[in-house]
Simulated scan of single mutants.
Amino acid sequence: MYESHSLLVLPHVRVQNANAISSPMTWGFPAMTAFVGLMHLLERRLTARDVPLLFEGVGVVCHHCEPQASHRGYTHAFHLTRNPVGRDGDTAAIVEEGRVHLEVSLVFAVRGDACAAPAEERAAIAREVGELLLTLRVAGGTVLPGSFRGRRWNGPELIPLDEQEDERRQQSKRLLRRWLPGFALVCRDDLLHERHAEMRADDPDTTLLDAWLDLSRLNMTCRGGEDDGEETIRWEARRRPGWLVPIPVGYGALGPLQAGGDVRRARDTATPLRFVESLYSIGQWVSPHRLDSPERLLWYVDNRLDEGRYRLRNDYIDNAAEFV
């Protein structure tokens, strides 16, 4: 796990109509790739403003999540917009778009000369980042002007982390408690591979997809016993180690890299293009006070270009790099 030197905290950002469809197979909370994309965009905009700040990772603590969907039993349906009729008077087609209202705290690992600036200059830079965020989209959603305002929370902050181990530990505890109540999304590749090994012991043909689906659903287990001499059977839900959810973690290449302009109707004719599909893993929602440092909730880019893999990593577990 790498150590961050400074953190840029944007607390309690209110986002309206963010994208709730995180991948072709998952929905509910936006994909972490959306927040990493926001991180890169912030860095580019700040570079254009000559702000000496470089971004290394991003963490998200969710305080409120309200999917715009209704459900009856096990059937869920998104709330869709009805568009005006076309010029010919016919009803316009409805494109399914999942939306969710969010309130999240964004935690960025940053470095640069701005991190060593005096406190007043750091506060000015943090306010500038907060004002810039209000002009951008977060996972396709609109940032509401009421963000960062509240009597219980501070505004955006650029916080240098203490270099002394003991002082850094105490500082980390104070920061993590500040983000309560809420839950941070972390990656649990280890649980996916452990479950895969357990299932392969019973069936050698079991794949990682089988293990992923097993951890993503509610599994019922039949248990037998005796009651007054009579055999009884009861069904119980299999307990899982925490609040686990299926998540996309990046993209895998479906073919070779194409030169810019070789693919027709591409948005950008100068940038190389590659067709990809989503990569999936298992995530876990963890309360921030259960983490030993803010670095545990950070996500960062760990591409393997020679293998055609563009994915994100999270160091909630120390041996995260061992898992594909």
Rank of each mutant, 00 (worst) to 15 (best):
L136F: 06
A69Y: 00
R127I: 13
E96G: 02
R169C: 08
L54W: 07
F323T: 01
R309G: 06
A48Y: 02
W299K: 04
E128W: 02
G59N: 08
L136I: 10
M39W: 00
Q164F: 09
R49E: 07
F78A: 05
V85L: 09
P24H: 09
V51I: 14
L53I: 10
R223H: 15
F78E: 04
G225Q: 07
R274F: 03
E165C: 08
E277N: 10
H5E: 15
D228E: 14
W235T: 13
N319S: 15
R239N: 02
V58H: 01
E128A: 11
R313Q: 14
R72H: 11
A117E: 05
R304V: 09
I233D: 00
R82I: 13
T75C: 02
M199R: 15
E120Y: 07
D162N: 14
G229T: 10
G260A: 11
G140L: 04
T47D: 03
E236N: 09
E66D: 14
H12T: 06
P246I: 06
R311P: 00
E165N: 11
T47V: 02
A117G: 06
A114I: 02
S70V: 12
N83S: 10
V110H: 03
V36T: 07
P118S: 08
V9C: 07
I125T: 14
L297A: 01
D203C: 09
D205F: 09
R45D: 05
C222E: 15
V9R: 00
P204H: 03
L213F: 09
V36E: 01
E128M: 08
V100Q: 04
N17L: 12
C187Y: 00
T81F: 05
E277H: 12
P11T: 08
E226W: 12
L257H: 02
M199F: 04
Y2W: 13
P272D: 07
D210Y: 00
E322T: 11
W27A: 08
F29Q: 00
T232D: 03
V263G: 05
R45Q: 09
G255V: 07
D210A: 07
S287P: 06
G89W: 01
R87Y: 08
G229A: 11
D306I: 12
A124N: 05
I21H: 01
T142S: 12
L254E: 04
V85W: 00
V58I: 15
Q170M: 13
A259Q: 15
A124S: 15
G140F: 08
I317T: 10
V110I: 10
E277S: 14
R44A: 05
R122S: 01
V51Q: 06
G141S: 06
E165H: 14
I282Y: 05
G242Y: 04
L254Q: 08
N154S: 14
G261W: 12
Q16K: 15
S216Y: 06
G260Y: 13
P156D: 04
L132K: 03
E198N: 11
A117Q: 09
L208T: 09
N219T: 15
A31F: 07
W285P: 01
R152L: 13
G28S: 02
S147T: 15
N19C: 12
N319M: 11
R82T: 13
E3Y: 09
P181M: 10
R169E: 13
L158K: 06
G130E: 01
V143A: 06
R188N: 04
F148D: 05
D190E: 11
H40K: 09
F323G: 05
G112S: 10
L273Y: 12
P84A: 12
E131W: 03
N17K: 13
